[in-house]
């Protein structure tokens, strides 16, 4: 390995990119194929449309990766997306208006996440079960808020978020900057540390419980914001619209090389994974695959994405 040429920062970043080269190449190849199949994506409207399909997936993948890096997992991503969508659709056209609706959605996400995190951290229950039980509760609340698809998001707000301008892409950049800033704080670093080795992190002064609760709260925030965006995209709310998001969020994070046991993986990998998934879904949609064939392909691709690097690394060791 070459010795650090630039700053320490660059060296660290290079190390963190290691193992992701294959993924980046795959994503690049898929995007090239995509552009050659549908040159329209290069126009402003086409680019906006494509990033709008990617945006909610990117948000929930980040929400899932955030927890997985901390050694947790959430099976309530889907219902929480739905909850964000129905709250947005029922409040924004009411007296609270759009700003009030956004605040209410954000507070709900932070609150639900914090409650899950508190139960996991303080009562020492496994995250997978708490969020599994929680998915019923959150899904039920979404049904109470809006029993049938309906509600409304003001048209100007839909146009601003999911119109012909790439607002979604700019928002995603903003979220990524936010993640970078968060990773520069002690809590952000503690997130990785507590995921990799909770006891070691605790002995080094990381407040493991608090970090876990913060991780769940932030994850909840990202998830409901994805729901808010979906509501703006469709112009209305649907209490079960988030259902496929749970699997997709896990798939995106795993494709991006984020490990289940905590502390392994990077957010850039997870984002690349979600982009891969989004491009894949788009391509299959445009090629006229029936939605069910997408399931088959998705299942195969996820297994391959995990198995191939593992088999390659085993061959290298042997």
């Amino acid at each position: 390995m070459s010795v650090a040429r630039g700053s320490l920062y660059r060296t660290v970043q290079r190390t963190r990119n290691r193992g992701l080269t294959g993924l980046y190449l795959l994503v690049a190849a898929l995007l090239v194929a995509y552009v050659s199949l549908f040159p329209g994506v290069l126009s402003l409207a086409g680019f906006s449309r494509f990033t709008q399909n990617w945006f909610p997936l990117a948000l929930v993948t980040m929400a899932q990766a955030l927890l997985m890096l901390n050694g947790g997992i959430s099976l309530s991503i889907g219902p929480l997306v739905s909850l964000g969508a129905v709250i947005a659709a029922t409040t924004m056209s009411g007296p609270l208006g759009v700003p009030g609706g956004i605040v209410l959605v954000a507070v709900t996400g932070l609150g639900v996440g914090a409650v899950f995190g508190t139960i996991v951290a303080l009562f020492r229950l496994p995250a997978i079960i708490v969020t599994l039980a929680g998915s019923f509760i959150v899904g039920g609340v979404a049904l109470l808020v809006l029993p049938k698809p309906g509600g409304m998001v003001p048209a100007w707000f839909s146009d601003a978020l999911a119109g012909q301008y790439p607002t979604a892409f700019l928002l995603l950049l903003l979220v990524i900057v936010g993640w970078k800033v968060f990773m520069a704080t002690p809590t952000g670093l503690g997130l990785y540390a507590a995921g990799d080795n909770p006891l070691g992190a605790f002995r080094s002064g990381v407040r493991v419980e608090r970090v876990r609760i913060v991780a769940f709260a932030l994850s909840g925030l990202l998830t409901v914001l994805a729901g808010l965006f979906v509501a703006a995209q469709t112009g209305s709310g649907d209490p079960v619209i988030g259902a496929p998001m749970t699997l997709n969020s896990i798939a995106g994070a795993v494709l991006g090389g984020v490990g289940f046991l905590g502390g392994r993986g990077t957010m850039r990998g997870a984002l690349a994974g979600s982009l891969l998934l989004a491009a894949m879904i788009n391509v299959m949609f445009f090629l006229g695959f029936p939605p069910v064939a997408q399931y088959v392909a998705q299942g195969l691709i996820i297994v391959a994405a995990v198995a191939v690097p593992e088999l390659l690394s085993r061959r290298q060791r042997a």
Partner: peptide, 27 residues
């Protein structure tokens, strides 16, 4: 076999299998 020989974590292997079956079945 996926979990043992391909070293895919069981949660992913079985989740992917569920997705796969769901699609295959409708086809």
């Amino acid at each position: 076999a996926g979990a043992a020989y391909l070293r895919v974590p069981p949660i992913i292997m079985t989740l992917a299998m569920a997705t796969f079956l769901q699609g295959l079945l409708i086809i």
